[in-house]
Simulated assay, not measured.
Amino acid sequence: MSRRRRLTLVALGTVVALVLGVAVWILIAKDYAFHEERVTIPGPRGELHGVLAIPSDDGPHGLVVFVHDDGPADADDDGHYRPLWDAFAQAGFASLSWDKPGVADAPGDWLDQTMHDRATEVDSVIAWAHTRDDIDTTQVGAWGIGQAGWVLPEVAQARPDLRFMIAVDPAIDWLRREQYAARAEAVADGDSPEDVAAAVDRRARRTALIRRNADYRAYLDSHVDEDPMPAARWAFVKRNANSDSTAALKTIPVPTLLLLGGRDRGVDVAETERVYRRQVQPDLLTVKDFPDGTHRLTRNDIEYRGGDIRTLGRSILAPKTIYVPHYLDTLRVFAKRQTE
């Protein structure tokens, strides 16, 4: 065999090995221990369109109810929840999430909700879970991110059957969070100190408008935002701007796992940790910091590079790998401990 032919065969073998390796990696990264069922749930303002992710083994199973962050999220959050559902399935828990009102043909409008409305919605979902024979309603927990920080404490107080809650980068005070985000985003964008100060000043002036209950015309006339939010968003912000979870955290009666991403640009996680440690009963609180985690607890090179084709491909082909190391294991271990 000629040297050229040998080199060609070696190169071909290398390519085949790489392709097979990638294929196996993708199969493992998308191998889930649950199956999905579309469900319709009676809600306080109309039906909710949900997805119940049920472990593949025999039940009944415990249940983790998912509470979305801000924005128009569908039931699986564009696929981002599936790795989390898999982690809970490995711990013996089903997961339940639903389209926000007005998203993916669901009735209603999520911008017409208060945080209390959202807590009432979660209450209805847990009540519905009691009608399912495949759910062990003595083992019901809740997972939530960001804006869920104003929802979960109310749910924990209202539902005596809630066994635990998991809060991912929850905010404390709505308007302080807005101020923090303005600075963090400007700094992350590499703005000059003068531009950072200008961004913070614009957000402060917007906060002042909200505090005095300015109408939408006054907001537009102020020119505090170069790209003004729609009228419905302005109404939503004003409706919820007084949200502050500080007092409610003192009354949380269940084991609580607080997960914090050190590179979060939207929530001041240092403030969140400080307030949770001060307010929540120490014997009920577990805190886990992920210094390199983003708001979603993805790797820092994933969440903030959404337009990158490599990032998009990884999110689609290997969604488990987008999260910061040990996050999914932390969910699994904590949920499993609640059953012991």
Rank of each mutant, 00 (worst) to 15 (best):
D99R: 01
D225M: 14
I322L: 10
L84N: 03
K336T: 10
T321D: 15
A33T: 09
D289H: 12
R277S: 13
F236T: 02
E154L: 06
R176S: 14
G21P: 12
G313W: 10
S315D: 11
G261C: 03
D78S: 13
V200E: 15
D283I: 06
Q147E: 14
Q281W: 07
P319C: 07
A232F: 10
G59E: 02
V196K: 03
D173M: 09
G262C: 08
T294Q: 05
D189M: 09
R310D: 14
L9C: 12
T256I: 07
I252N: 01
T114K: 02
L328M: 09
H223A: 13
P230G: 13
V333G: 02
E303I: 10
A184H: 10
L331K: 00
M115W: 04
L9E: 13
D268G: 06
L285G: 00
D74I: 02
A91F: 03
R6G: 05
V64Y: 00
M1H: 12
R82K: 12
V155N: 00
A127F: 06
A335G: 06
R202E: 13
D86T: 08
L63M: 10
P42R: 05
D283A: 12
D201R: 03
H68T: 11
R265S: 03
L162V: 08
P72R: 02
H49Q: 14
F88V: 05
D76I: 13
V196W: 02
D227H: 11
K238F: 04
G144L: 03
N300D: 14
I172Q: 11
H61N: 04
R212P: 02
R305A: 14
R176D: 15
R217Y: 06
V324F: 00
D105W: 06
I26L: 09
Y276V: 00
R310N: 14
V168T: 09
G43P: 03
D76K: 07
T339Q: 13
I145R: 04
H130A: 12
Y304D: 07
Q157W: 08
D31W: 10
V122L: 08
V155H: 00
V10I: 15
D105Q: 13
R159K: 12
D76H: 12
A148L: 09
I54G: 00
A199L: 03
D134H: 04
D105P: 01
R177V: 08
F93M: 04
R299T: 08
W128T: 10
T339D: 06
R177T: 15
L9A: 14
I126N: 02
A129G: 07
T14M: 15
P44K: 05
E47M: 09
A89I: 08
L328S: 06
